[in-house]
Write a protein that binds this DNA or RNA. Structure first.
Length: 99
DNA sequence: ATATTGACATTTA
DNA sequence: ATAAATGCCAATA
């Protein structure tokens, strides 16, 4: 369980509701710069609902890509009280989760 | 084992 | 300001 993937999943599942994070921050917290690998790990997530992958967004505040046929990032985040304007997160910097 | 791709980020035009 | 190019590391083929 030392793969980057497992770490990412673990951290992602630990994100509190109402908070968000970015691929960059996750990677930095894991001690790597593999921002892309973080996304790769999340897309391979085994438990989509358990792991709040929708709380992980891009560093510029955009939602980024998402491949869930049923859910969309904006809807899920709005459900958690996060405002989204024009595919960007409102006050996303203030809602960033500090590990 | 090597090559290509990707749920990104940063820099340059 | 937006758009394209380049770089990053892991995962997948």
């Amino acid at each position: 369980m030392n793969n980057l993937r497992n770490k990412v999943l673990k951290l992602t599942s630990g994100i509190p509701k109402g908070n968000i994070t970015t691929y960059k921050i996750l990677a930095e917290k894991l001690g790597t710069k593999a921002y892309r690998a973080v996304g790769t790990a999340l897309k391979n997530n085994p438990t989509p609902i358990i792991i709040p992958c929708h709380r992980v967004v891009k560093s510029n505040g955009e939602l980024g890509e998402f491949s869930s046929k049923v859910y969309k990032k904006e809807d899920l985040l709005r459900e958690e009280g996060i405002e989204i304007k024009n595919n960007r997160i409102v006050d996303f910097k203030e809602k960033l989760y500090r590990f």
